[in-house]
């Protein structure tokens, strides 16, 4: 019997079982077992993240810099002194846009490009 034949027979056998609901029940039991424990292993290690409160400011499109509102100076000068590695980029936690908070994205898991860039959260990264 060729591999194709075996695959075809397995498919037909499973199709038959599904027709009687057997496979579906088995799958459901597996799913139930897999979600029996609540939470994640990682939950045991959750701790407060570093949060840096940045002074009021705005992004200046002409200068291509973030500017501190009060002094009108680039924020980077301040942040270097204030926080070292935890610069103000660390405070802009990106959004999990599938779970917006009151319409505003709230940031955590990214797909695509941004999943590679959990901006600022891991200061050492």
């Amino acid at each position: 019997m060729t591999e194709n034949d075996r695959s075809r027979r397995r498919f037909l056998r499973e199709a038959g079982l599904v027709a009687f609901g057997v496979l579906a029940v088995a799958s459901a039991r597996r799913a139930e077992a897999a979600t029996g424990g609540r939470g994640l292993f990682a939950d045991q290690f959750l701790e407060d993240g570093h949060v840096v409160n940045i002074p009021a400011g705005h992004y200046d499109r002409a200068r291509k810099l973030f500017i501190e509102e009060e002094s009108g100076r680039p924020m980077v000068a301040q942040s270097q002194q204030m926080t070292g590695s935890w610069t103000y980029s660390d405070t802009t936690r990106c959004t999990n846009m599938f779970y917006p908070n009151n319409g505003a994205p709230t940031c955590s898991a990214y797909d695509s490009d941004q999943d590679s860039h959990p901006d600022g959260f891991k200061p050492g990264e």
Binding site: L40, A42, F45, L46, D48, G49, R93, D115, P118
Partner: peptide
């Protein structure tokens, strides 16, 4: 030790992190 393989944060608020433990 345990580490996360991807992001070091968990939760929508991002106030919680998972370091190496």
């Amino acid at each position: 030790v345990y580490k996360s393989m991807t992001q070091g944060v968990l939760g929508q608020s991002l106030q919680k992190s998972v370091y190496t433990n």
